[in-house]
């Protein structure tokens, strides 16, 4: 087995609502090796998104640790997490979440504006990302001028552009028809196999889980193999 990229230990996440405590993730352990492609399934409300957000550094746990590439991201403050996210993780969400007024090219460039790259360098990176997702000819289009599948490709290019080790996808095909979903899944698969990206994907779709290297089930805050 190769090197461990994501190391989750005794992770718990609770929400206090009124007097009650809602345990969403309960003392959870998970290791994801580099270049793994892991599908996470489970019923609605089981805590899949919560786990994903913790691993992606969007949220902090109630207890336990999350290490990515040896870095304890659970101990970072919000500013450190922002910096960390900017260069270490790419997010892909169900609803693409592109900025409507910006062209595909500008949307993809957004993460790079936080770096020291020159305009020319940024342009090159954006082109590379567009080529990988097969949308080089649509760079000047606004999201409203693109199909759902194309928008998701732009979102994937945006997640790729800063060359992160891990891609975190929350139901990336949830809003797409079967054929388009298959295209997107093939794209993710090639990112994993050909570009060495580690992928963690939440999905309700057995076919999507099928395309991953392995899958895990989450139920009531616990992982079931």
């Amino acid at each position: 087995m190769s090197e461990i990229l994501v190391d989750v230990k005794n992770l718990s996440k609770e929400y206090k609502r009124g007097g009650e405590t809602l345990v969403v993730l309960d003392d959870l352990n998970l290791e994801i090796p580099k270049e793994d492609y892991l599908a996470l399934m489970g019923p609605s409300g089981s805590g899949k998104s919560t786990l994903l957000n913790l691993i992606g550094g969007l949220d902090t746990p109630s207890s336990g640790s999350v290490s990515i590439n040896g870095e304890r991201i659970d101990q970072m403050n919000s500013k450190q997490l922002s910096n960390w996210r900017a260069s270490n993780v790419g997010f892909i969400f169900q609803f693409y979440n592109l900025l409507p007024v910006l062209t595909a090219q500008k949307n993809i460039e957004l993460p790079l504006l936080l770096t020291n790259l020159s305009g020319a360098q940024r342009k090159k990176h954006v082109e590379t990302a567009l080529n990988i997702v097969g949308l080089a000819d649509r760079s000047g289009h606004k999201p409203s001028e693109l199909s759902g599948g194309q928008q998701q490709r732009v979102a994937i290019a945006r997640a790729l552009v800063s060359d992160p080790d891990i891609l975190v996808c929350d139901e990336p095909t949830g809003d797409l028809d079967r054929d388009t979903a298959t295209d997107i899944l093939n794209l993710l698969k090639s990112l994993n196999e050909d570009h060495g990206k580690t992928i963690l994907m939440v999905t309700h779709d057995p076919a999507a889980a099928e395309s991953a290297k392995r899958s895990l089930h989450l139920d009531k805050g616990k992982l079931i193999i």
Binding site: S78, R85, A86, F91, N97, L110
Partner: peptide
């Protein structure tokens, strides 16, 4: 929009 920017690493 703002949430997505933050997820991309834009600071508060």
């Amino acid at each position: 929009d703002l949430a997505i920017l933050k997820s991309l690493g834009y600071k508060d």
